[in-house]
């Protein structure tokens, strides 16, 4: 079972609208396997985004448990969860969520700046900077390093976001509709990049999408509907 990086069991989550309980997740079990691309497919409102937020410890489930590397993290202290998000996982979003005041390079540096103290940062700043440049180079954006997000195209912003998510060498990359805001061609570029990261660096990726075409490209595909996983995971491709 050491192959499973992140596992969630019996996750339930409801929202309340005017004291009316709106269940979003009704007992979801999901495992993310190391070195694989896992896709969660579902239409909007199926609860896939909520599930991802719970997996990323951005939100807390009403019931159920989330384990990361054998350790329960959903009820861990705020500090532990902050540290977990910072070093263990990388997250990319549909709307990129780059900080508009910072240049592309500074955005990539942000997780490291958040993760270490001022002193540590200054001690290692040259090395950190080189690593950030390497990350930007990896996504093909080194020539745009000093540009602000407002000067970048959607695809470039998403590449920057990917570089940022890789900055702290995460075990797992969580992607929330990474192509949702891009045209098909640019989206394909992003997917190729993610696939490349998975194949070349062995990065574990958990991707959420509403696009079946993208989902079919994943190693493992979970289909979600009305807050539940529809069926047991389907292996799209034979495991290499």
């Amino acid at each position: 079972m050491s192959d499973i990086v992140l596992s969630a069991h019996g996750i339930r989550k409801s929202y309340y609208k005017n004291e009316l309980e709106v269940p979003v997740l009704r007992g979801v079990d999901v495992d993310v396997v190391r070195g694989k691309v896992t896709a969660l497919v579902g239409r909007s409102g199926s609860g896939k985004s909520t599930l991802m937020h719970i997996l990323a410890t951005l939100d807390v489930p009403d019931a159920g448990e989330v384990h990361f590397g054998g350790r329960r993290i959903d009820n861990a202290s705020r500090r532990t969860r902050d540290a977990f998000r910072n070093d263990q996982i990388g997250i990319i979003f549909q709307f990129y969520h780059l900080l508009p005041e910072l240049s592309a390079l500074e955005n990539v540096l942000a997780p490291t700046m958040i993760g270490c103290s001022l002193r540590d940062y200054f001690r290692n700043r040259k090395e950190t900077r080189r690593r950030a440049e390497a990350m930007l180079d990896r996504v093909g954006l080194l020539h745009r390093a000093t540009h602000k997000p407002s000067e970048l195209s959607g695809g470039e912003m998403q590449r920057t976001a990917i570089a940022r998510s890789l900055m702290n060498k995460p075990t797992l990359l969580l992607a929330d509709e990474p192509t949702g805001n891009l045209d098909t061609e640019t989206g394909q570029d992003i997917l190729r990049l993610l696939r490349g990261l998975n194949q070349d660096d062995g990065l574990t990726i958990c991707m959420i999408t509403h696009d079946d075409a993208i989902a079919t490209n994943a190693d493992i595909c979970h289909r979600m509907k009305d807050g539940q996983l529809m069926q047991t995971p389907r292996r799209v491709k034979a495991v290499a």
């Binding site: 990323a56 951005l58 500090r79 997250i91 969520h97 942000a110 997780p111």
Partner: peptide, 13 residues
């Protein structure tokens, strides 16, 4: 949104 982003990247309250 930037505050949300920072928190997602692991910034504490």
């Amino acid at each position: 949104r930037d505050i949300g982003t920072l928190k997602a990247l692991g910034a504490s309250g």
